[in-house]
Every structure is written in C-alpha cells, then in structure tokens.
Simulated scan of single mutants.
Amino acid sequence: MDGSYGDPVGDLVRAAVADRPLEDVVHLITLLEESPQYAQATGAALRAVGVDRSVEDVTRLVALLTRPPRDADSADEAIRAAVESRPVEEVTRLVALLSRSELQPHCGQEAVRAAATGRPVEELVELIGRLATERPPQPSYEAYDGEGRLGPELPWMPGLSVFPAPPPHPPASSWPRKAPAWPGRLAALALLVCGVLCFPVQQDGASLQVYGFALGVSFLCVLLAVLMIRPTLPVLVFAVVAPAGVAAGQLLYGRFRSEGLARALELPLAPAWLAGTVAACASLAALTALVVHLASPTPPNGVLTERRTAEPVREAADAPLAP
C-alpha cells in the first residue's frame, strides 16, 4: 500500500475491494480512473484485489477490466501484485487461467513477465515445472480423426484446426453419365417390328437379286434394332435413314420405273400400307433418340479418366491400416 495516502486511505481502499461484488469493484476502479488525483488510489485498489481476492476473482476482474473498449493493460497492477505475492501453486493456476483464449493475450503475457522478474530463481524453477506438468498433452491426428475432426481447435478461433485440412475428395462431375435410355429402346422395338413386317416370306417368281434386296432390308432393320441397345452416333443416323427409305418406298409404290424395285416391295409379310406406317414410326423414334443423344453429351475423356483413377485412390485412403 502506498504510504503517501496514509493508513486511513489504504484501509478504506482495502476494505472496499475485499468483500464487494466484482462488478462494484470494477465500477469503483473506473470512477477512480477518471481523475488523475486518484491515480495512487486506483493502483492501491488493483493491488488489493490481486493480493486479497481469490485466484478466480482476480481472473474475473482482469476479464472485466480488459474488456473492449478498455485498454488491455488496465489490470496489469492487479496481475503483478497477485503473481508476486501468492504461493507458487496459486501462481500456477493464475497463469493458466489468464492464458485462456477468451482473455486478452496481453494478460497471460503480463503474468508470465511478472513471474519471471518478481519471483526468486528457485520458485521460478518450481513454477516452470508445474506449468510444464499441467500443460495438456498435444492430441494426435488419430484422436481427432476418430471424432470426425481434423485436429485440435485454435483457442482464439473455435472450429479452426491448427493442422491444415487434407484435400477433399474430387467433386463429382457435373456432366451427365449418359443419355436417357428409353428413346433408344423405343426405336429398337419399332425397328424390330419393321424388320419382321418387311421380311419376304415367299419369292413369287422374283429374281434372286430382288429377293436378296428385300431380305437385306429386313435384316438391316433387325440389325439396327440390336445395335440400338447401346447406340452410337453412326448407328442412330442409319436407324433414321433406313426405315425412312422403307417408308418412302412403300408410300411411293407404283411410281417406280424400276420393275425390280417395285417387285421387291411386293414381297414383305405385311401389306405395303402397314409396313410403310411402321417404318415411318421407327424412323421418327430413331430421330428422337438421335436428338436426345446430341442434347446429352458424354463427359470428356479427361473427366472419365480422372473419375476412374480417383475411385481406387479414395478406396485405398479410406481403407483401415493393417495392424
């Protein structure tokens, strides 16, 4: 206690901060700080709190006095008094409390400085040993991986790990995997029916060449129907053109100057009007499948290669290590 104020002032300040709630003590210190003539009384009040109140009360007072917009060094006098006058056990606890993340970093640093300069060397060695013993062990990656986290959080930034996050799995590509299958299947069914209806069941005096042509048209439709299971662009184009030619031939029957072509149109199993109608429907279905295929591009080769490469790597990374 500063003797320049005399015993009555010192006793008054000490009694005022001894048992009052910390909020009242903070209010008292704030009022004393407003006038320079109370500077010594302010310091006496801070020192009295640091000496006479519990370690927890000192920590709470420091938190209240250093809360913005107040200066971070507003409670330095109380910190120094507490560190210089208390047993090593209490100083250890005080330093640990003042180093918490919710307090200003300056508070913990001031406590360490006061201990380093104001304690005997023997007590300083004991304090170092206690602080080293009470320091929590550094957690490993395994402990946090088991909890679904990447590492210990920074005390002043909750939720942020001190370890860099591993790169995430490659994001799924935004390209569609393939075009819808139903247009191709519908076209395949129509082509199959067209091929059956165009099959020449009898030769009826037609030449071998004419009969082979009619048989070839039937087989071509059936073959295209089979290929439409996994259609490619050339297959889709042929699937549009071939039945369209059959439909045009049936609709224009009787107008051909070629006797062989006209004879070939008389050989199919179904009548001309039915075979022509089914062929036109097959051509329209194939055209629909072609439009859908063109409107749904497949991913580039680089994307497919990256995806195929990433899957084994991901499986290997997620697999547990062998004991």
Rank of each mutant, 00 (worst) to 15 (best):
residue 257 R to I: 11
residue 305 T to S: 12
residue 137 P to Y: 03
residue 150 L to W: 11
residue 232 T to E: 13
residue 79 I to R: 03
residue 233 L to W: 13
residue 93 R to V: 11
residue 16 A to K: 00
residue 85 S to R: 12
residue 255 R to P: 03
residue 262 A to L: 08
residue 172 A to I: 06
residue 306 E to I: 00
residue 37 Q to T: 10
residue 183 P to V: 07
residue 223 L to D: 08
residue 117 T to S: 14
residue 192 L to N: 05
residue 132 A to V: 10
residue 74 S to G: 04
residue 42 T to C: 09
residue 190 A to R: 11
residue 302 G to R: 12
residue 59 T to G: 09
residue 47 R to Y: 04
residue 165 A to S: 03
residue 81 A to K: 02
residue 68 P to S: 06
residue 127 L to K: 02
residue 165 A to F: 00
residue 319 A to V: 01
residue 238 F to A: 15
residue 114 A to Y: 02
residue 131 L to N: 10
residue 110 E to D: 09
residue 123 E to T: 07
residue 179 A to C: 06
residue 260 G to L: 09
residue 223 L to H: 06
residue 322 A to N: 00
residue 11 D to Y: 10
residue 302 G to E: 15
residue 223 L to E: 09
residue 160 L to H: 13
residue 4 S to K: 02
residue 224 L to Q: 03
residue 198 C to G: 10
residue 119 R to T: 05
residue 119 R to Y: 02
residue 126 E to D: 15
residue 186 L to M: 10
residue 250 Q to H: 06
residue 121 V to T: 15
residue 88 V to R: 05
residue 207 S to P: 01
residue 123 E to C: 08
residue 142 E to W: 04
residue 318 D to R: 13
residue 104 Q to Y: 01
residue 221 C to P: 00
residue 87 P to Q: 04
residue 199 F to Y: 14
residue 229 I to H: 15
residue 287 L to E: 03
residue 112 V to F: 06
residue 194 C to N: 07
residue 155 P to E: 07
residue 274 L to D: 05
residue 200 P to Q: 01
residue 296 S to C: 12
residue 108 G to R: 00
residue 65 L to E: 09
residue 37 Q to L: 09
residue 240 V to C: 15
